[in-house]
Simulated scan of single mutants.
Amino acid sequence: MYSKEEALLIKKEFWTAFAEAYPRKWLLYDTKIKDVTFKFFIDNKKAQVLLDIEPKDEEKRKIYFEKIESLKTILLEDYLPEAILERNYYLESGKVISRIWIEKLEVSLNNRSYWPTIFDFFSKTMAQFELFYFEYEEYIKDLDINT
Results as ranks from 00 to 15, higher is better:
E130R: 01
N88S: 14
E69N: 04
I10N: 11
S98E: 10
E135F: 07
N44H: 03
Y2E: 13
L71V: 13
S70E: 08
K39G: 14
W15N: 03
A7M: 08
Y2R: 14
E5T: 14
F14S: 03
L76S: 03
R99Q: 12
Y136D: 12
E137Y: 05
S108W: 07
S98T: 09
R61N: 07
E106K: 11
D52R: 07
K34D: 12
D43W: 12
K12P: 01
K141L: 01
I74Y: 06
K67C: 13
R24S: 09
F41S: 15
K25H: 07
E59C: 07
I68F: 05
L51I: 01
D144Y: 10
E92C: 04
Q128S: 12
K95V: 13
D35Y: 07
E54C: 08
P116D: 13
F122T: 01
N88E: 15
R87E: 15
E106M: 07
A83P: 06
Y139L: 11
L9C: 07
T37R: 05
I68C: 09
D30F: 05
V96S: 04
D43P: 10
Y79I: 06
F134C: 01
K11L: 01
E92Y: 08
R87F: 15
L143I: 06
N146F: 14
E103Q: 14
M1S: 15
Y90G: 13
N44L: 08
L85Y: 01
K95R: 11
L75A: 11
L143W: 13
E82L: 13
E82I: 09
K12M: 00
M126L: 11
L50I: 15
A21Q: 03
E103H: 10
T16H: 07
S93T: 15
Q128E: 13
N44V: 02
L80W: 09
D30E: 08
F40L: 07
E13H: 03
F38H: 08
K72I: 11
E13C: 02
K4V: 08
Y114F: 09
F121E: 06
Y22A: 06
I102R: 00
K39S: 15
T37W: 04
T117N: 12
T73D: 15
E138P: 04
T73C: 09
F132T: 03
T31I: 02
K11T: 10
Q128I: 03
E135Q: 10
E103A: 10
W115I: 00
L131H: 04
E92K: 10
F129M: 10
T117I: 07
S93Q: 06
L109T: 06
P81D: 02
I33E: 03
F38L: 09
L105D: 15
E66M: 12
L85Q: 01
W115R: 12
E138D: 14
N88T: 14
I145D: 05
L8A: 07
F134K: 03
T117F: 08
L71P: 13
A21R: 01
L143C: 08
K95D: 10
Y22Q: 08
I102G: 01
T73E: 15
P23W: 13
E66Q: 15
Y133I: 00
L80E: 01
R87C: 12
D78Y: 14
M1W: 09
F134E: 02
Y136N: 14
N146R: 14
